[in-house]
Amino acid sequence: MPLKEDELATRSGTHWRRPGPTPDRVCLMIGQLGLGGAEKQIALLARELNERGIRTDLLVMFRRGPREAEVRGSGVKIVDLGFQGRRPLLRGLTANVRAFCRLVRYLRRTRPQILQAFLFHSYLTAAPAARLARVPVLVAGRRSLGDYKKDHHLALAAERLATRWTDSVVANAQAVADDVRRNEGVPASKITVIPNGMPPRDFEQAPAAEVATTLPLVVCVANLAAHKGHRYLLEACALLRSRGRDCTLVLIGNGPTRTALKEQAQRLGIDARFLGARTDVARFLARADVVVLPSLHEGCSNAVMEALAAGRPVVATSVGGTPELLRGHGVLVRPADAEALANGVQHLLENREFAEELGRQGRAWARANLSVEAMTDRYVSLYRELLERRCAA
């Protein structure tokens, strides 16, 4: 339960006195509110914290987006900070300095006991702001493996400095935690693993989408980016066609590789439908015979989680946190291997009873382990532990 008014943390100057065991106010910070997995998780966490009586503000650096609708009417306050990402250098720099000052002033005025930042730009910005505003506890989230940062030495140096100012790093999978410890040198004692969560609606049976095809339907939900491995999935579908196991492939998501992938699909002569970003993913999952995620690297995949919740059989590459999600109720294959993907999909299409049983097992496991309530319980427990540690210090 939240603290009573006379038990709330108070300030002397810009310093907080001893907070209670449960935070009264939390600020969550992210770059934007698009349809990505991290954006879904921050919206879910904000709503659930607020429903538990913990006042929650959602700080948006650059712009809002479709996920705003998921917190509208919940009591969560959305704050536009006004950072600029694509303006000319000088004008953008001036705007960003003003936005940073706006962030510090907001934190000083509202006095949250916890500031939690999601994704790279947010926790790099949140770290110095939290120190200047004397926020008691700063939490940084890691949502994916850090492979993309290995050749960016300046970014790594900035990240390590920010991590030094951070009280806890939350990884959404053990594989991500291991990557943070191994590549960033963060001690294990500073890392906590909290898997992503799903709202009750993700476990409800959605009406199946109408897709004009007589072939088995394979669905992939992922941004059209190179690291998602779509080109190997298209090659796998071509292999299936050569074996007489033709299928219709539905790709949900947008991204920079869309044009190249459409040209590849046309060249291979496969039935690939590019549907773009959608908010009715559950209807296509309900229609799918098999769900595939061919990523080359991954954190804790929301797409895999949603497929499990929908009770669909999954074929996915054995990267990042995906093996932690499938846990024996899915088919894991090597990354960047079209033949392995084709074999996995073919095995499920030819063994329907086995595929259905995998779907039932996955759904039961997801319901028991991946609810938004379980995720929020873990976050609140972490917040309390960090506040107690801060008080003791």
Rank of each mutant, 00 (worst) to 15 (best):
274 F>D: 09
76 V>E: 00
266 Q>H: 13
280 D>P: 03
261 L>D: 03
378 R>S: 14
379 Y>A: 02
231 R>A: 05
7 E>A: 13
253 G>V: 02
152 H>N: 09
81 L>F: 09
264 Q>E: 11
96 N>M: 04
123 Y>M: 06
119 L>T: 05
327 R>F: 09
257 T>P: 11
376 T>P: 14
331 V>E: 12
215 L>Q: 12
166 T>R: 02
150 K>A: 05
25 R>P: 02
316 A>G: 02
150 K>Q: 11
176 V>F: 00
20 G>T: 02
187 P>N: 00
111 R>W: 04
255 G>W: 13
24 D>L: 01
8 L>W: 06
336 A>R: 11
265 A>R: 13
369 N>F: 08
244 G>T: 05
316 A>W: 15
31 G>Q: 08
170 V>L: 05
233 L>A: 01
211 V>M: 10
162 A>D: 11
359 G>Y: 15
365 W>A: 07
369 N>C: 10
57 D>A: 02
46 A>V: 11
20 G>F: 00
22 T>D: 01
367 R>F: 12
307 A>P: 13
66 P>N: 06
49 L>D: 00
75 G>P: 15
199 P>C: 12
322 T>E: 00
39 E>M: 06
254 N>Y: 10
159 E>F: 01
39 E>D: 11
231 R>M: 08
163 T>W: 15
259 T>A: 10
108 R>Y: 03
380 V>F: 07
376 T>R: 07
110 T>R: 13
259 T>C: 03
300 C>I: 02
233 L>Y: 06
311 G>M: 06
154 L>T: 14
28 L>F: 04
278 R>L: 06
170 V>S: 08
235 E>N: 08
166 T>C: 06
135 V>K: 04
239 L>D: 03
344 G>W: 04
59 L>D: 00
213 T>L: 10
90 L>P: 04
155 A>M: 11
227 H>G: 00
136 P>E: 07
314 V>P: 15
358 L>P: 03
212 A>D: 14
142 R>L: 07
2 P>Q: 04
75 G>V: 04
85 G>W: 13
3 L>K: 05
279 T>N: 06
300 C>W: 09
219 V>T: 10
193 V>E: 10
325 L>V: 02
364 A>I: 07
144 S>I: 10
91 R>M: 07
164 R>Q: 07
23 P>E: 03
103 L>I: 04
60 V>D: 06
122 S>P: 15
128 P>Q: 04
242 S>R: 14
384 R>N: 08
11 R>F: 13
228 K>G: 01
101 C>V: 09
121 H>I: 02
277 A>Q: 10
150 K>I: 08
114 I>A: 01
199 P>F: 06
41 Q>D: 11
253 G>F: 07
283 R>H: 12
180 V>L: 08
156 L>Q: 14
327 R>G: 04
26 V>S: 02
106 Y>R: 08
65 G>S: 12
369 N>G: 10
58 L>V: 12
